[in-house]
Amino acid sequence: MKRFLMGMMAVLVLVVLAACSGDTIDEGNEGASTDKKDQTIKFGVTPWTSTVPPTKIAKLVLEDMGYKVEETNADVSSIYIGLSRGDLNVYMDSWFPTHQIHLDKYEGKVEDTAISYSDARSGLIVPTYMEDINKIEDLVGKEDLFENKIFGVEPGGNAAKIIDELIEGYGLDMEQVNSSEGGMLAQAIRLIEQEKPVVFYGWRPHTMFNKLDIKVIDDSKGYFSNPEIHVMTNAGLKEEAPEAYEFLSNWSISIDDVEEMIVAIEDGGDPEEVAREWIDNNQDKVNEMIGK
């Protein structure tokens, strides 16, 4: 009986050890299942042509790194709300100092992560055939030539607010007519084709400077400044997805590359194919950004 009891005890010990070993293995597997392959990086995408190239490149690189990626189309104010709540992780096309107001509003919840490029430009645009209009002061007294209208992008955005402030600051007898980027440009192109006076909001990077004979008029009062384009992230991304954050914090691209990609996309190229071509042609740069 004694030998029988000792044998039973030995069997029980082995069973317990096996169970503990199994628990350890399961816990190890559980830890492995939380790697980046199970993480989704969510991008906010504004309805601007300049947003698409950097977003598509970053999306493909992150997918190559093993992440899942989702895109959400929204206006810039909604994207900052999403970043602050953690509903979105990344926005690739934030214009500074114009968007500083959003960063101030969500301080501590949204992080200014990288400068994408620093040689952008924005302001009021006229056709070059308007030789006597070279600065905003030149519009004063000639507002009726333009039917007292300045064409701008979507209402509620910072660019629209700046234009309203500019109209008041320069004492212009004009009103801003807001629409989408496409709607604004369609109206401007229609008038340019007829060689009529038109003033509208423009920025670089954009194919409007490749396709239209236009110029930015000087803003001596500084309502518009030469912007930098920044990458913004949710403040928690650094801890939640450190490898993705490292890549985004090292991000940079030239404005010329962005404009070339915009042209290729507008000429019918698939955005992801255009982005993949950029990656293939700039693999050394991509490797630097991901820390290889």
Rank of each mutant, 00 (worst) to 15 (best):
N89G: 11
V52M: 10
I229P: 03
V286R: 03
D119F: 03
G291R: 11
D26I: 15
G156F: 08
V286A: 07
G31W: 08
H230M: 01
R3V: 15
E168R: 14
E259G: 04
M92R: 02
G82S: 14
E246R: 14
Y245P: 02
N250F: 13
D280L: 00
K285L: 09
G44A: 07
K56S: 05
V11L: 01
S50T: 09
V177P: 08
N73F: 11
T72F: 03
S21K: 13
M261L: 08
P97Q: 15
D23M: 15
P97H: 13
E181W: 13
V61N: 02
T24W: 06
R276P: 01
E243M: 11
E131W: 12
K2T: 13
E30V: 13
Q283G: 05
E71W: 07
L83F: 04
V52Y: 06
D219Y: 01
T34N: 09
E175Y: 11
E239T: 09
I253M: 07
V13S: 11
I133Y: 03
F151S: 04
Y129S: 08
M1A: 09
G291Q: 12
K59Y: 06
D256L: 06
M208C: 02
M289D: 01
P205S: 10
I217P: 01
R276W: 01
G183C: 08
G202N: 02
L62H: 04
K161P: 01
E273D: 15
K196C: 07
L62A: 07
P54S: 12
V231G: 01
E272T: 12
G108M: 09
A188M: 05
L60S: 05
V16A: 00
W203K: 05
I57T: 00
M130P: 05
G222R: 04
Q194M: 15
D23G: 13
G202E: 00
H99W: 11
V231Y: 04
M92C: 03
S94W: 02
E288K: 08
S33M: 14
V61T: 02
N158F: 13
G183Y: 02
F247I: 01
F146V: 05
E246W: 11
D164R: 08
S180F: 11
D119L: 03
I189N: 05
N234L: 02
W203S: 06
N250K: 14
E70P: 10
Q39N: 13
G156I: 10
A10P: 08
T46V: 10
V110M: 11
K149Y: 04
I133W: 03
V177I: 15
V69L: 00
I265H: 03
G44K: 02
D119R: 02
T207S: 10
